Amino acid sequence: MNDQDLLIPASQVDRQAVDARTRRGRIQMILLLLACAAPVIASYLAYYVFKPEGGKTNYGTLIQPPQAINPSWLDISFSGKWTLLVARPASECRKGNDACVELLYLMRQVRLALGKEKNRVQLVWVVSDRLPVDPDIKQAYDPETAGFIIVPAPDPKNSTVWLTWLNQQNLGSGIQLIDPSGEKMMVFPDKAESKDFVRMRKDLDRLLKLNRKGEKI
């Protein structure tokens, strides 16, 4: 102990030692927390900030924030079930128009592929031109056989707000996914190839597995 130390009370020396140990302990704790949090921070930055295209885990496009559907637009309940909705004119969805019919077929097959979980999902075709649906198409995509609910587009007086909701992020031609609370949260591309079927089913499998909030089966 040198002369300078003799001028410091013993209690003060002990306090300084305690403070030094406390600082070291806090620094070690912060470093430990940073080491544990590093993977989480890195994954957050990769998904939400940098968003590398090749690292996407979902096929559909997320709608942020989710967009609630007005229950008065369509004569159908969107509460309590997941809904895959597509808007197409009846004048196009006829035999010979493969693009439209194949899209309806894709939706039906994706729902069937969910197996015992299929009843958690309803399919909705909004007839955008409000014209009568071809009888053969209507029979093939009825509620009993295919799980489809076919409804006319909203009254023309509501067409502006409806089309704005439908075309959120310029995705109006896609397959809209509405969650059990009645909010659109994802849109799938309007494609009907086998690879699209697999990707879409995987997204739905993942969502149905992780989320049952608000469902009424």
Rank of each mutant, 00 (worst) to 15 (best):
S11Y: 06
F78D: 04
L7R: 02
D134S: 05
F188H: 10
C100S: 12
L33S: 15
T164D: 15
E53S: 15
Y48L: 04
G55I: 00
K202G: 08
P66W: 00
L7T: 08
F197W: 11
Y48G: 01
S79H: 08
R111C: 13
F148C: 01
Q12A: 02
E215N: 03
G25P: 01
Y48H: 08
A20V: 03
R206E: 10
K202Q: 13
M107L: 14
T83K: 01
T61V: 09
V187Q: 09
I217Q: 01
K195A: 15
T61G: 02
F78R: 02
N211L: 09
M29W: 08
L208C: 11
M200K: 02
Q64L: 15
G25I: 11
V49Y: 04
D3G: 05
L123C: 10
Q28E: 13
M29G: 04
N119D: 14
G55N: 04
S43L: 10
A38W: 08
G54R: 03
L210S: 12
L106Q: 12
V127K: 02
D179S: 05
V13H: 00
D129I: 11
E215Y: 09
Q28R: 14
M186S: 07
A37G: 14
K216T: 03
G96D: 04
R201M: 10
V110W: 09
I217H: 00
I63S: 06
I149G: 03
M186E: 05
K213V: 13
I76M: 09
Q67V: 15
V124C: 01
I8K: 01
A146N: 01
N2L: 01
S173P: 07
L114G: 06
A68C: 10
F78H: 07
T61Q: 04
V121P: 15
C100K: 00
W82I: 13
L171S: 01
P39W: 04
E117C: 10
K195R: 08
P135I: 00
Q4V: 10
G54N: 10
M186V: 12
L163V: 13
D19C: 02
R201H: 10
Y47E: 08
D129Q: 08
F78V: 14
R130Y: 12
Q67D: 03
R21L: 11
L114V: 04
I178N: 05
N97D: 11
L177F: 11
L32M: 13
L6C: 00
S181H: 12
I137E: 02
L166K: 09
D75T: 05
Q109G: 06
G80F: 13
P152K: 01
P66I: 05
T164I: 14
L204R: 02
R201A: 14
N170V: 06
Q67G: 03
G214E: 13
G115S: 07
R111E: 09
R26I: 10
A10H: 03
D129G: 11
P65M: 03
P143E: 03
W162A: 11
K184H: 01
D75S: 14
A146W: 02
S128V: 03
M1H: 01
P132N: 02
I149P: 05
I27L: 14
R201S: 06
G182H: 05
S79M: 06
N58L: 07
G115T: 09
